[in-house]
Design a protein around this nucleic acid. Structure first.
Length: 901
DNA sequence: TAACCGACGTA
DNA sequence: CGTACGTCGGTTAC
C-alpha cells in the first residue's frame, strides 16, 4: 500500500561508505581519545552529518549500514570486492561508536543481513518517493547515482569530509555524459575497480556513453554488439559476460523487507544528556559546540518554567505599585484575557508582571469602581511603559470594555518579526524557546491554546489559567528585553518604535471602524452570479453530453478533457495535468470545443459567487465589514488582510468590479475616497538604481511604459504601439520579481530568444537598473540579508545554498524584497502621516482600508477638498525619493468602485 | 477532521 | 523558469 506522507524530505546516509571516506581522509593520529580509541571515522562522519542536516533541513533521517561482507553479490561473484584490503580494525572498532552517536541524536540506523547499505537506501528511497516525498542521499558509493531523479538528489563527498558535490540529474549527466538511469549501464561497461568488477578493457566513460547514446541503453548495446567496430568492439564482445554480471551486481535492490518504514524516521529532538555523555567520551568538544550552535533552538538548555513563588500580588497591592510615582518608569508586561473577533470582543482579565519577579492577576469583571478607574488611568497613561505580545487584539478587547491602552513600548511579536520576518509563527511559546531557551510550561492543558487573534482565552478564571496568564506575563517581560537587543542588533529599533508600534493603533481603529457595505446589493449580486454559474454549468454539461462531473474538481475535469475529449495534455502538476485558466484558454484555441468556453465561464462566475458569499458571511451587525490586518505575516514588510481578505477584492473584470460597487459610504458620511501611489515600485527602482533614463521617465510626466517603450524599441514616444507598450510593461514589472527570459517569453507568447533580445535591449537602455539588481544580490549574498529604505531586513540564507533551485529562488526574493518592502515602508509612513494630519485638522473623515499601495477613506460631509489635499500631501511626502516624484492619484465616489480613477 | 493541493483574486 | 499574500473546494490521509 502506498502511504502518502505530509511534507517529507528524507535524508539517507550510507554510514559505512561515509565513515570509510573519513577514515582515510583524516589523519588518525589527530583523532584519538586519551584512552587510545581512534575516532577519525566517527568524527568525519558526524561532521558530515551535522553539515548535511544543517544544509538540507530534512524532516526524516536514517543511516544505513552494511551488516557483513557476506552479501548476495558475493554469492554470485566470489571475487566481489576482493582485493580490497581487509577492513582495518582501527576502522571497525569505530562502527559501534557511530551507532552510539546516532542513538544519542535519536537518528535511526538500519542494516539488512546479506545486503549492502545502498540496497537499504534504495528501498527507503523508493518508499519515500512513492509517498510523494523528496529524498537526499549522502553516500560515497557511486552505485547510488542510479537513484537520482528530480525528487532524489545525491550528496557525494569529493575531497576529505568537507567538500561535497550535490548531484541532481543534470549534474550526473554533466559528469558522466549519461542520465542517472543509465549510470549503472555505464558503470557495468567501464567497470568499478573498488568493487573489483573489471569492465571492458580500453573502454572508459566516454566510449561507454557514446554507445549508450547510440543504442539507448545497455540492452541496446548488447543487441547491436556485432555492429560495434574496432578494438573496443572486439573487447566488448570478449567481455560481454563480465559486463552483464557487473550490471546484475550494481543494480540496487529496492524492495527489501525493512524493520522500519519512512514514517518511523521523523526527526526527533535529541537526547541531550546522552549527547553530552557520548561526545564527552569521544572528546568531541568542538564538534559538540558546532552541533549545538547549528541547532541552537533544539539544543539550548531548555529550563523549567517561570517561577511565581512568593511574588504574586493581589489587586490592591498591584494598583498601589502601579500608582507609586517612584515606579512611574518601571516597565510592566500585560496579558489580556478575553476574546476579540470581527470588530467586537471583550476583555475579562489582566495579568501583569514587573521587576523583582512580581506578577498579578486582575478580574476585570469584579473590580470596584475606584479600582477600575485607577487601572484605567494606568492603562491609558502614555508615560507608563508596557510591553505585550501581539498587542492589537488585546488593545481591541480592552477598547470594547471602554479601556484605552497607551504607553506600549514594545510588542514582542512585532520585535521578533523585525528580527526574522519570515518565521511562520510568532507564538509566545515558540519565541520563549527560540529567544529565551526556555519552555513556557503551563499547568493546565488547554492554557496554551490560542483564542481568537492569538489571545489567551480565559473564559474560566480557575486557578491554573490565572497562573498561566501570570507566567505568560513574566515570559513577555523577559522576552521584551532580549528582543530589544536583537532588534537593535539588526537595526530595527527605529522601525519598531517609529513605524510598526504606532501603526498598531491606526490599524486597530481601521479594523474597528470597518467599511460599509450595501447588504441588499450584495445579496442581489450573489443571486445573479449564482444564476450565471448555473447557466454556465448547464452549457458545460450540454457540451459534453453528461452531467455527472463536478466542474470544481480538477481531477474529474482531467478525466473529461484528456480522457473523454482526448485533448492534448497540458503542463504537469504534482498530481496530473493542469486545468488552470491559461491552459484552458490555450486548449480552446487549439480545439474550439464549446465545453471549454462554458467551463471558463463557470470558473469565473463561481469564483465571483464564492467571493460574494464570503463577504455576506462577514457583514457585522453594524452592516459593515471589519477585516483584520496582520502585521507579522509578509516577509517583505507588507500587511496582510484576513477574515475577510479585503486586499484581493476583484477589480480587473467588469463583473468583478460590481463587487467593489457594494462597498459604500456609511451613514453620516459623504463619500469614499481612494488614493493610490502610481507605479510606486518602479519609482523606488528608479530612485534606488539612480538610473538616469528611468528617473527621466518619471520626471517627464510621460506615460511610463510609453517612455520606456520608446527607448527600448528606438522609436518616438508617439510611435510606441499598444503591443510594444504592453511588452515593456510586462518586462518592467517582471524585473522586480526576477523574471527570466523564459518566463517573459511564456507570458508574451514569444520565443525565448525574442524575450532575451527584449531584455538585452531594455538593459542596454537602462543599465543602471541592471547594475542595481545585480548589486542587490551580490550584497545580500555577502551580508546574508536585504534591506529596505528604512532598514527593514530580510535574511536569505538560501543565497548560499548549493541547491540551485533554492539558491535561485532566494535570488529572486532578494531582488524583490527591497522594492516591495520599501513600498510597504512608504505606505506605512503615509498612514502615520494621514492619521496625524486628520487628527490635527480635527477632521471627522477616517481611514478604512489599506491595499498595499492604496488607502481608502470615508469622507465626512464638507471635508472632501481638505481631505484630498491632506492625503495627497501626506502620501506624496511620506519619503524623499530624490529626483523621483511620488505620484498620488485620488478618486471619490459613493462606492469603492466609483472612487476608482 | 486536518492537511494538502490546485486554482485564482489582489498589489 | 515572476515576488508577496488569503481563501475556497476537492481530495486524501488519519
Amino acid at each position: 500500500m502506498v502511504v502518502r506522507l505530509p511534507r517529507v524530505k528524507l535524508l539517507l546516509l550510507d554510514g559505512h561508505s561515509l565513515a570509510y571516506r573519513a577514515f582515510f581522509a583524516l589523519p588518525v593520529e589527530n583523532f584519538s581519545t586519551s584512552t587510545g580509541q581512534n575516532t577519525n571515522a566517527v568524527y568525519g562522519f558526524t561532521s558530515m552529518l551535522i553539515n548535511v542536516l544543517r544544509d538540507e533541513a530534512p524532516t526524516h533521517v536514517a543511516v544505513a549500514f552494511d551488516v557483513s561482507r557476506q552479501t548476495f553479490r558475493l554469492q554470485e561473484y566470489s571475487e566481489y570486492k576482493a582485493g580490497r584490503s581487509k577492513t582495518p580494525s582501527e576502522f571497525s572498532s569505530q562502527l559501534p561508536l557511530m551507532r552510539e552517536v546516532l542513538d544519542a541524536l535519536r537518528i535511526r540506523h538500519v542494516g539488512v543481513e546479506g545486503y549492502e547499505a545502498d540496497d537499504v537506501i534504495a528501498t527507503l528511497t523508493r518508499q519515500a518517493t512513492a509517498a510523494g516525498g523528496e529524498v537526499v542521499v549522502c553516500t560515497g558509493d557511486r552505485d547510488a547515482f542510479q537513484l537520482v531523479t528530480d525528487k532524489v538528489s545525491l550528496i557525494y563527498p569529493v575531497r576529505g569530509v568537507s567538500e561535497v558535490w550535490r548531484m541532481d540529474p543534470a549534474a550526473v549527466e554533466e559528469k558522466y555524459l549519461v542520465p542517472p538511469e543509465r549510470y549503472s549501464d555505464l558503470a557495468a561497461l567501464v567497470g568499478e575497480s573498488s568493487d573489483n568488477l573489471p569492465g571492458v578493457p580500453g573502454v572508459g566513460p566516454k566510449t561507454a556513453a557514446k554507445w549508450l547514446g547510440q543504442y539507448g541503453d545497455l540492452q541496446g548495446v548488447v543487441a547491436h554488439v556485432d555492429e560495434i567496430k574496432g578494438k573496443a568492439g572486439e573487447n566488448l564482445r570478449a567481455h560481454l559476460e563480465d559486463v552483464l554480471r557487473n550490471r546484475r551486481l550494481n543494480r540496487l535492490v529496492d524492495d527489501l523487507a525493512l524493520p522500519l518504514g519512512v514514517e518511523d524516521l521523523e526527526r526527533a529532538s535529541w537526547d541531550r544528556e546522552e549527547v553530552h555523555r557520548v561526545f564527552d567520551g569521544l572528546e568531541f568538544r568542538v564538534l559538540r559546540d558546532r552541533l549545538f550552535q547549528t541547532f541552537e533552538v533544539e539544543a539550548d538548555e531548555v529550563e523549567g518554567g517561570f517561577d511565581l513563588e512568593g511574588h504574586v500580588l493581589d489587586t490592591p497591592a498591584l494598583l498601589a505599585r502601579l500608582a507609586d510615582p517612584a515606579r512611574a518608569a518601571t516597565v510592566h508586561s500585560l496579558v489580556v484575557g478575553g476574546h476579540f473577533r470581527g470588530g467586537v470582543g471583550d476583555a475579562s482579565s489582566l495579568a501583569v508582571a514587573g521587576d523583582g519577579g512580581v506578577a498579578a492577576h486582575v478580574d476585570l469583571t469584579a473590580l470596584t469602581p475606584d479600582d477600575e478607574a485607577a487601572l484605567a488611568a494606568w492603562l491609558a497613561d502614555p508615560a507608563a511603559p508596557k510591553v505585550l505580545h501581539d498587542v492589537k487584539p488585546q488593545l481591541q478587547a480592552l477598547s470594547t470594555r471602554g479601556l484605552a491602552l497607551r504607553g506600549v513600548t514594545s510588542d514582542t511579536a512585532l520585535a521578533a518579526y523585525l528580527v526574522r520576518p519570515d518565521q511562520r509563527s510568532y507564538d509566545l511559546e515558540d519565541l520563549v524557546v527560540r529567544h529565551l531557551s526556555r519552555e513556557l510550561r503551563t499547568e493546565s492543558a488547554g492554557a496554551s491554546d490560542q483564542g481568537q487573534q492569538g489571545m489567551l482565552d480565559l473564559e474560566t478564571d480557575d486557578d491554573s489559567s490565572v497562573r498561566d496568564a501570570m507566567v505568560r506575563a513574566r515570559a513577555v517581560l523577559e522576552l521584551a528585553d532580549v528582543l530589544a537587543e536583537k532588534v537593535e542588533e539588526t537595526g530595527g529599533t527605529g522601525l519598531l518604535h517609529d513605524l510598526e508600534l504606532p501603526l498598531v493603533d491606526i490599524l486597530a481603529v481601521m479594523e474597528r471602524t470597518g467599511v460599509g457595505v450595501d447588504e441588499d446589493a450584495l445579496t442581489a449580486l450573489e443571486a445573479d452570479f449564482a444564476a450565471k454559474m448555473r447557466q454556465a454549468q448547464q452549457d458545460a454539461y450540454d457540451a459534453i453530453g453528461r452531467e455527472d462531473v463536478n466542474l470544481g474538481s480538477p481531477k474529474q475535469l482531467q478525466e473529461v478533457l484528456f480522457g473523454q475529449l482526448d485533448m492534448p495534455k497540458t503542463k504537469r502538476t504534482k498530481t496530473g495535468y493542469t486545468t488552470d485558466a491559461d491552459a484552458l484558454a490555450d486548449l480552446f484555441v487549439k480545439t474550439e470545443h464549446p465545453f471549454l468556453e462554458a467551463l471558463l465561464r463557470h470558473r469565473d462566475t463561481s469564483r465571483l459567487r464564492v467571493t460574494v458569499e464570503g463577504l455576506i458571511k462577514s457583514v457585522a451587525p453594524d452592516t459593515r465589514i471589519h477585516t483584520t490586518y496582520l502585521q507579522t505575516i509578509a516577509a517583505t514588510g507588507r500587511l496582510s488582510s484576513t477574515d475577510p481578505n479585503l486586499q484581493n477584492v476583484p477589480i480587473r473584470t467588469e463583473e468583478g468590479r460590481r463587487i467593489r460597487d457594494v462597498f459604500v459610504v456609511g451613514d453620516g458620511f459623504e463619500s469614499l475616497m481612494s488614493a493610490d501611489y502610481s507605479q510606486i515600485e518602479m519609482r523606488i527602482m528608479a530612485h534606488l538604481s539612480g538610473d538616469d533614463g528611468l528617473i527621466e521617465a518619471f520626471r517627464s510626466g510621460e506615460d511610463l511604459h510609453r517612455f520606456v517603450g520608446a527607448r527600448v524599441f528606438s522609436v518616438a514616444p508617439e510611435d510606441v504601439t499598444l503591443e510594444m507598450r504592453s511588452k515593456v510593461k510586462a518586462m518592467s514589472y517582471g524585473l522586480a520579481y526576477g523574471l527570466s527570459a523564459f518566463g517573459l517569453s511564456k507570458q508574451l507568447t514569444i520565443t525565448t530568444s525574442e524575450a532575451q533580445g527584449l531584455m538585452d535591449e531594455y538593459f542596454a537602455r537602462f543599465g543602471g537598473v541592471r547594475d542595481y539588481l545585480r548589486e542587490i544580490v551580490v550584497e545580500a549574498r555577502a551580508t546574508g540579508y536585504t534591506a529596505t529604505m528604512l532598514g527593514r531586513r530580510r535574511y536569505l540564507p538560501d543565497l548560499l545554498s548549493d541547491n540551485r533551485q533554492r539558491r535561485e529562488g532566494a535570488e529572486r526574493m532578494a531582488l524583490n524584497a527591497p522594492i516591495q518592502g520599501s513600498a510597504a515602508d512608504i505606505i506605512k509612513l503615509a498612514m502615520k502621516g494621514v492619521d496625524s494630519a486628520l487628527r490635527e485638522s480635527g477632521a471627522r473623515s477616517r481611514m478604512l482600508l489599506q491595499v498595499h499601495d492604496e488607502l481608502v477613506l470615508e469622507v465626512a460631509p464638507g471635508e472632501r477638498e481638505d481631505v484630498e489635499a491632506l492625503v495627497r500631501r501626506e502620501m506624496g511626502s511620506a519619503i524623499d525619493l530624490g529626483d523621483v516624484p511620488l505620484d498620488v492619484s485620488v478618486g471619490v465616489g459613493r462606492s469603492w468602485h466609483d472612487a476608482a480613477h
